[in-house]
Simulated assay, not measured.
Amino acid sequence: MRGKPLYPFALTAILGILLIIVLSFVGVNIGPDTASENGEENAEEQEFDDPIELGESIYAGQCAGCHGGDLSGGVGPALDSGDYSADDIVDAIAEGPGTMPDNIVSGDEAQAVADYILAENE
């Protein structure tokens, strides 16, 4: 008994490889356009008049991945209980308790994050 011919399998493999190559070129051509558009927007630093808005922006970029976008926790503890003071939050940012890295932000930015967390708990 003769086995199945290799032509359909080889054709499928060749078409798959060609598809990967085509999609790679499409992705390479799309990438720089998107990057330059985002780069122009990100190149200009946003200025915030309200420290809570600044804190919200920093929290979204630096803290939400571990503490949750709604302060409900995740990898890191929940911050929505209202059990923390501004000094507790600033100290935690500076010291990095547990597995949290220390000094993610400092100074006015750390205080802005604390103000944001406290404002969300009101």
Results as ranks from 00 to 15, higher is better:
residue 4 K to W: 13
residue 5 P to F: 07
residue 6 L to D: 15
residue 7 Y to D: 14
residue 9 F to H: 03
residue 10 A to H: 08
residue 11 L to E: 14
residue 13 A to K: 08
residue 14 I to Q: 11
residue 16 G to Y: 08
residue 16 G to I: 09
residue 16 G to L: 14
residue 16 G to P: 07
residue 17 I to Q: 08
residue 19 L to F: 10
residue 22 V to M: 05
residue 23 L to G: 07
residue 24 S to W: 13
residue 25 F to H: 15
residue 27 G to Q: 07
residue 27 G to V: 00
residue 28 V to C: 03
residue 28 V to K: 10
residue 28 V to N: 07
residue 30 I to G: 04
residue 30 I to S: 02
residue 30 I to P: 01
residue 30 I to W: 06
residue 31 G to T: 10
residue 32 P to F: 10
residue 33 D to E: 14
residue 34 T to K: 12
residue 35 A to M: 13
residue 36 S to T: 04
residue 37 E to S: 11
residue 37 E to T: 09
residue 37 E to I: 12
residue 37 E to F: 13
residue 39 G to Y: 08
residue 42 N to Q: 09
residue 43 A to T: 03
residue 45 E to V: 05
residue 49 D to W: 00
residue 50 D to E: 02
residue 50 D to H: 02
residue 50 D to I: 03
residue 51 P to C: 04
residue 52 I to D: 04
residue 57 S to W: 01
residue 59 Y to F: 10
residue 59 Y to A: 01
residue 59 Y to P: 02
residue 62 Q to D: 00
residue 63 C to W: 01
residue 63 C to E: 05
residue 64 A to R: 07
residue 65 G to I: 05
residue 65 G to T: 13
residue 66 C to W: 08
residue 68 G to R: 04
residue 69 G to P: 03
residue 69 G to W: 02
residue 69 G to A: 05
residue 70 D to Q: 14
residue 71 L to V: 12
residue 72 S to G: 07
residue 73 G to I: 03
residue 77 P to S: 11
residue 77 P to N: 10
residue 77 P to G: 07
residue 78 A to I: 00
residue 78 A to F: 01
residue 78 A to S: 10
residue 79 L to F: 06
residue 79 L to G: 00
residue 79 L to E: 07
residue 79 L to V: 01
residue 81 S to D: 10
residue 81 S to T: 11
residue 83 D to E: 14
residue 84 Y to T: 03
residue 85 S to P: 12
residue 86 A to F: 07
residue 87 D to C: 00
residue 88 D to Q: 04
residue 90 V to P: 09
residue 91 D to E: 13
residue 91 D to V: 05
residue 91 D to M: 07
residue 91 D to Y: 01
residue 92 A to D: 14
residue 93 I to N: 04
residue 94 A to G: 12
residue 94 A to I: 10
residue 96 G to K: 12
residue 96 G to H: 13
residue 97 P to N: 11
residue 99 T to L: 06
residue 99 T to I: 09
residue 101 P to N: 13
residue 102 D to W: 06
residue 104 I to D: 02
residue 104 I to Q: 10
residue 104 I to E: 02
residue 104 I to P: 04
residue 104 I to T: 09
residue 106 S to P: 00
residue 107 G to A: 04
residue 109 E to M: 11
residue 110 A to C: 09
residue 110 A to G: 09
residue 111 Q to E: 15
residue 116 Y to K: 02
residue 116 Y to A: 01
residue 116 Y to W: 01
residue 117 I to V: 15
residue 118 L to W: 03
residue 119 A to N: 07
residue 119 A to S: 03
residue 120 E to F: 02
residue 120 E to D: 04
residue 120 E to Y: 01
residue 121 N to T: 00
residue 122 E to A: 08
residue 122 E to M: 00
